[in-house]
Lab assay of single mutants.
Amino acid sequence: MTEYKLVVVGAGGVGKSALTIQLIQNHFVDEYDPTIEDSYRKQVVIDGETCLLDILDTAGQEEYSAMRDQYMRTGEGFLCVFAINNTKSFEDIHHYREQIKRVKDSEDVPMVLVGNKCDLPSRTVDTKQAQDLARSYGIPFIETSAKTRQGVDDAFYTLVREIRKHKEKMSKDGKKKKKKSKTKCVIM
């Protein structure tokens, strides 16, 4: 069974824990209790493949930012979460993405942009803004509501699919490099 290491990042209060708990335990946590770091595991079937999701729910508070490099190193894919009623959390996505790329030393890291709290009427981040940002990053965008469960499975499952595509691409690139290195030079 394939294991996928997913990391949920975003500013404090955007609903990272609520999304994760909704996926794992099928219930909505409405009281806000700032996370330092929590880890969850769940076995699911995605596109006919049974897999184990190892999900790291991270601290959004700035005082825990020193811990970010460590979990970013171990993560295979990242859910970059903002709240649709919090423009600052949307603007912060850029910083999370840049930090992930720096730590992973790669421009090509599996990510999904997630606009959470889409059940709320007080939207300050337009869907088109988020779609445009995701398009500019070359990553999928999904709106979710941890409260109603809308888009929750889709967000995590899409990230797994992005990781699969990335692994497939990397193995193809690896095979191309191996083929090239088999060419021999004969000096007579």
Rank of each mutant, 00 (worst) to 15 (best):
E63G: 05
E63I: 04
E63R: 00
E63F: 04
E63P: 06
E63V: 05
Y64S: 15
Y64W: 14
S65I: 08
S65C: 07
S65L: 07
S65W: 04
S65K: 03
A66T: 11
A66K: 03
M67Y: 04
M67G: 06
M67V: 06
M67W: 11
M67Q: 00
R68N: 15
R68K: 08
R68F: 15
R68V: 13
R68D: 14
D69H: 07
D69V: 01
D69L: 00
D69W: 00
D69S: 05
D69C: 02
D69A: 05
Q70M: 02
Q70W: 06
Q70A: 01
Q70L: 02
Q70D: 04
Q70T: 01
Y71T: 14
Y71A: 15
Y71I: 15
Y71F: 10
R73T: 09
R73P: 03
R73Y: 07
R73C: 08
T74G: 12
T74M: 14
T74Q: 15
T74Y: 15
G75H: 04
G75Y: 08
G75S: 07
G75D: 02
G75N: 05
G75I: 14
E76H: 07
E76V: 13
E76S: 07
E76D: 14
E76C: 13
G77F: 13
G77E: 00
G77R: 00
G77A: 13
G77M: 12
F78V: 07
F78I: 10
F78L: 07
L79Y: 04
L79K: 00
C80N: 02
C80R: 01
C80I: 14
V81L: 11
V81H: 05
V81C: 11
V81E: 08
V81W: 00
V81I: 11
F82P: 01
F82M: 12
F82S: 11
F82L: 08
F82Q: 02
F82I: 05
F82H: 09
F82D: 01
A83Y: 01
A83G: 14
A83E: 15
A83W: 02
A83M: 04
A83K: 05
I84Y: 15
N86A: 05
N86R: 04
N86V: 02
N86G: 11
N86S: 09
K88W: 10
K88L: 09
K88Y: 07
K88S: 06
F90Y: 13
H94L: 10
H95L: 05
R97V: 15
E98M: 03
E98V: 01
E98F: 01
E98K: 04
E98I: 00
Q99V: 06
I100G: 00
I100C: 05
K101R: 11
K101T: 08
K101L: 08
K101W: 04
R102I: 06
R102F: 05
R102V: 06
V103D: 06
V103G: 05
K104A: 13
K104Y: 12
K104R: 14
D105V: 05
D105P: 06
S106A: 11
S106F: 09
S106P: 04
S106R: 07
S106V: 10
E107A: 11
E107I: 13
E107L: 09
E107R: 08
E107W: 10
E107D: 12
E107Q: 11
E107Y: 13
E107S: 11
E107K: 09
E107V: 13
D108R: 06
D108K: 05
V109Q: 03
V109C: 07
V109L: 05
V109S: 04
V109W: 07
V109M: 07
P110C: 04
P110Y: 01
P110H: 05
P110T: 04
P110D: 01
M111K: 04
M111G: 00
M111Y: 02
V112S: 00
V112M: 05
V112C: 03
V112K: 00
V112N: 00
V112A: 03
V112P: 00
L113V: 11
L113K: 00
L113R: 00
L113G: 01
L113N: 00
L113F: 13
V114P: 01
V114F: 03
V114A: 04
V114R: 00
G115K: 02
G115T: 05
G115I: 11
N116K: 02
N116C: 15
N116W: 01
K117T: 14
K117S: 14
K117N: 14
K117L: 15
K117V: 15
C118F: 08
C118K: 06
C118I: 11
C118D: 09
D119W: 02
D119T: 04
D119S: 05
D119R: 02
L120G: 14
L120S: 12
P121F: 09
P121L: 09
P121I: 07
P121H: 12
P121G: 13
P121K: 10
P121W: 09
S122M: 11
S122V: 09
S122D: 11
S122F: 07
R123A: 13
R123Q: 13
R123C: 13
R123D: 14
T124F: 09
T124Y: 10
T124M: 09
T124C: 12
T124I: 08
T124P: 09
T124G: 12
V125R: 09
V125D: 11
V125H: 08
D126T: 09
D126R: 06
D126K: 08
D126L: 07
